[in-house]
Design a protein around this nucleic acid. Structure first.
Length: 753
DNA sequence: CACAGGTCTCTTTTT
DNA sequence: GAGACCTGTG
């Protein structure tokens, strides 16, 4: 390892400064990961630090695995004994052997978002709170925020004393926490908060971990919240070897409690710390960097930092505004295809970044139609899928049935004739008699007000679980899973419920995947245990499509949040519109920092691009059930004109926008001239309006019989015939994928290819 | 009381 | 396009 040759002077300084607090302010693309990896390897090989004395915390599992791999490459297998993990996984590990001290069962479970929702619903029922007056989501946000600030229900109540609204929320919080606790569950925030509690209340435990983790590093430090800060502060308090790496300009998780002052005030929190700034960028062209710098300069709350590169200026940043999301997607897809066909790029060189997950649909359609290979980095997680939640709930119920939430989830699934009313009665009965929900089932005859039919079904259910439990003793997890599927008729249920055959197929694949994961775990674990299995896997945001490895040559579609830490030769940022990016919420927020967060997200997006960056926007977009016109994002205007290459100026767009009518009727008429025709969100009302009011322009198509054409949804096909159909020309096309179809030329928008 | 089928609402971002 | 909510029927 030749540090001075392989690293720049600042990076080298960060690597050698192993003792004491260190703050590495690492701009985007400044070789941050490289620096951390060298630092770890340096600790291991030069400083002879034992690998188990090193803790490296990241935010995502992906980042953790990547880092582990790269350290292993440099420092050999000893790296395997370091603890490189996410905050949440590290806490689970620590809590694993200490949960009892806090009164939790050893087999505590993790409550994911779905569990949180069902728990809060129960609480609402119990406290008779109307979800319309107090949306569950908002309550959960407040509770999560309180936990991020390490406030217990009692603390929270004290802090908000005298505020009737917050006092009410405090009541919900208390009940919510009670429910979690009595079911032996911790939500994501509890994992951190309880670890901090553990350290505070049990100094010997803290001391043990302080001795264990003598060298600590935290990646993406700008995204830490107060509880995470306290956690690492406690852990590092003895040896003070704490190295944090981050970029205040890339702090994009304020909505989940990230406290940007953790990084801005690091020097205050850890006096005498060493600060290293990495500003040389090795990723992007100068134009891209200048654009990023220009945008982020508009933020007030930041440490001054400016990226520079020794590399080329590169091409200008392109901005294109299209009529609607469909046109926007087509534009991007056409470009990608052209560049691929010219042999300039392969699909894997491209990423399309969006602000929201929903935007991906339109983009997917456009790519699919052109047979472009793509992948969506999805927000939907495997463990949150309904099918998987159902089946794991069954598995855990068969295993221990200690968790009421899970039993209630499956008791009437598939439908057995056990309704909400009966379930409520049993819950009340169970609470009154100090029984778990499941144990209450065995005394169903004593529960009043439950119809005989339901009672019979409940008895059957109870016995079925016991039966499966008995037989599961001598079969593996996947054997038990099979029994569950057989006994419950779950597959038939799925088949009946599935909206489409494809959906059913997909769900079957999920189950197959669950089986594989169970088998893999059972083969590896010393003492296989389902609760442990869930804790290990439930935290992993594993995407469904991770098979095949990264060798796939595919265009990636993802949100900008998901893109953090990645880089691509060509980046498209779609939906650069006021109202979408920055979003309405941020624009309307009275907190000026809301816009700053959006701007940082924009900065993250821009700095993903290595060579080429294209920003696109749609002039109209469906939002909240109606079509709305949007002007170009303010972020576009913040990029100096000389860096931009655009078809229209943002100002021109604004002028155009002013000509657009404002009331609905006029808007709809105007809209007819911008035909996103069959886009999925196209509501009945608008179609009716079009049919009634407008004549579709009758133009002789630009293609003739025998020509190959492209339809935005059906894909490519051959024109069989063109007939004058009165109001419009009627075209018959034989599509390669979907066969012969007749359509009107004005609507179909066929393109000759 | 259970359930099917309909309507309405709402979509930022995630461990 | 999913999930919550409402209504009529058995």
């Amino acid at each position: 390892m030749d540090i001075d040759r392989e690293l720049n002077p600042e990076q080298a300084r960060a690597v050698r400064q192993t003792e004491g607090p260190v703050l590495i302010l690492a701009g985007a693309g400044s070789g941050k990961t490289r620096t951390i990896v060298y630092r770890m390897a340096y600790l291991l090989t030069e400083m002879k630090v034992a690998p188990w004395n090193i803790l490296a915390v990241t935010f995502t599992n992906k980042a953790a695995n990547e880092m582990k791999e790269r350290i292993r490459e440099m420092a050999g297998n000893a790296a395997g004994q370091m603890l490189v993990s996410t905050f949440h996984s590290a806490c689970v590990r620590i809590l694993y052997s200490n949960a009892r001290k806090l009164g939790y069962p050893e087999k505590f479970e993790i409550a994911d978002t779905t569990d949180q929702k069902s728990i809060i619903k129960n609480v609402y029922k119990k406290l008779q709170i109307d979800p319309k007056k107090q949306p569950e989501k908002m309550t959960l946000n407040i509770i999560s925020g309180a936990k991020d600030e390490l406030l217990s229900p009692e603390d929270f109540e004290r802090v908000n004393y005298g505020d009737p609204y917050m006092e009410r929320v405090a009541g919900i919080y208390r009940e919510y926490q009670k429910t979690l606790f009595s079911n032996g569950m911790m939500d994501f925030d509890d994992l951190i908060m309880n670890t901090v509690r553990l350290f505070r209340e049990f100094p010997d435990v803290l001391d043990h971990y302080q001795e264990r983790f003598r060298y600590i590093s935290v990646d993406e430090y700008q995204d830490t919240n107060t509880s995470q800060f306290e956690l690492i502060r406690l852990l590092s308090d003895k040896y003070k070897n704490i190295c944090v790496v981050g970029d205040d300009d890339q702090s994009i998780y304020r909505f989940r409690g990230a406290n940007i002052y953790n990084i801005l005030d690091f020097e205050k929190h850890f006096p005498g710390c060493c600060v290293v700034k990495l500003e040389e960028n090795y990723r992007s062209t100068e134009n891209i960097l200048n654009a990023a710098n220009a945008v982020i300069k508009h933020n007030s709350e930041r440490k001054y930092k400016s990226l520079w590169t020794a590399g080329d200026k590169g091409e200008r940043i392109r901005f294109r505004q299209l009529s609607d999301p469909t046109a926007e997607a087509s534009f991007i897809a056409d470009e990608i295809r052209t560049k691929k066909e010219r042999g300039e790029r392969s699909y894997g060189d491209f990423a399309i970044l969006t602000r929201t997950n929903i935007q991906s649909k339109e983009l997917e359609d456009a790519l699919r139609v052109r047979s472009i290979e793509y992948d969506v980095v999805k927000g939907l997680r495997f463990w949150d899928t309904k099918v998987i939640k159902d089946l794991t709930s069954y598995l855990l119920t068969v295993d221990n049935a200690l968790n009421d939430i899970r039993v209630i989830r499956i008791i009437n699934l598939p439908k057995r004739g056990i309704g909400d009313a009966s379930i409520n009665k049993i819950s009340v009965f169970a609470a009154a008699n100090g029984l778990s929900f499941f144990d209450a089932l065995s005394r169903i005859e004593y529960v009043g007000g439950v119809p005989a039919k339901a009672k019979a079904a409940i008895r059957d259910f109870y016995e079925m679980i016991l039966r499966i439990r008995a037989s599961s003793k001598n079969m593996g997890f996947s054997g038990t899973l099979n029994r569950i599927l057989e006994e419950t008729g779950y597959m038939d249920y799925l088949f009946m419920e599935a909206e489409t055959p494809d959906r059913y197929k997909e769900e079957k694949e999920y189950i197959e995947k669950l089986r594989e994961t169970l088998d893999a775990y059972e083969n590896e674990a010393e003492e296989p245990d389902l609760t442990d299995f869930m804790r290990q896997n439930g935290l992993e945001g594993s995407n469904l499509d991770k098979e095949g490895g990264d060798s796939k040559d595919k265009v990636l579609i993802m949100t900008m949040h998901n893109a953090k830490g990645l880089e691509f030769p060509e980046v498209y940022m779609a939906g650069m519109e006021e109202g979408l990016f920055p979003g309405y919420a941020a624009i309307n927020s009275e907190d000026p920092l809301a816009i700053e967060e959006e701007r940082r997200l924009c900065y993250v997006g821009i700095t993903r691009a290595k060579e080429s960056l294209t920003l696109t926007a749609a002039r109209s977009r469906m939002a909240k059930g109606e079509w709305r016109f949007a002007s170009a994002s303010r972020f576009i205007k913040e990029i100096p004109k000389e860096l931009l290459n655009m078809s229209t100026t943002p100002e021109a767009t604004e002028r155009k926008e002013k000509i657009f009518p404002i009331n609905r009727e006029e808007a709809e008429r105007a809209f007819e001239r911008i035909p996103p025709a069959f886009s999925p969100g196209f509501k009945k009302r608008s179609i009716a309006a079009i049919k009634k009011g407008s004549e579709i322009e009758k133009v002789l198509p630009a293609y003739k019989e025998g020509d190959r054409v492209m339809h935005f949804k059906q894909g490519e096909g051959t024109v069989l015939s063109i007939r004058d159909g009165g109001r419009d020309y009627e075209v018959t096309v034989d599509f390669d994928k979907t066969g012969v179809r007749k359509m009107f030329a004005g609507f179909a928008k066929l393109k000759k290819i």
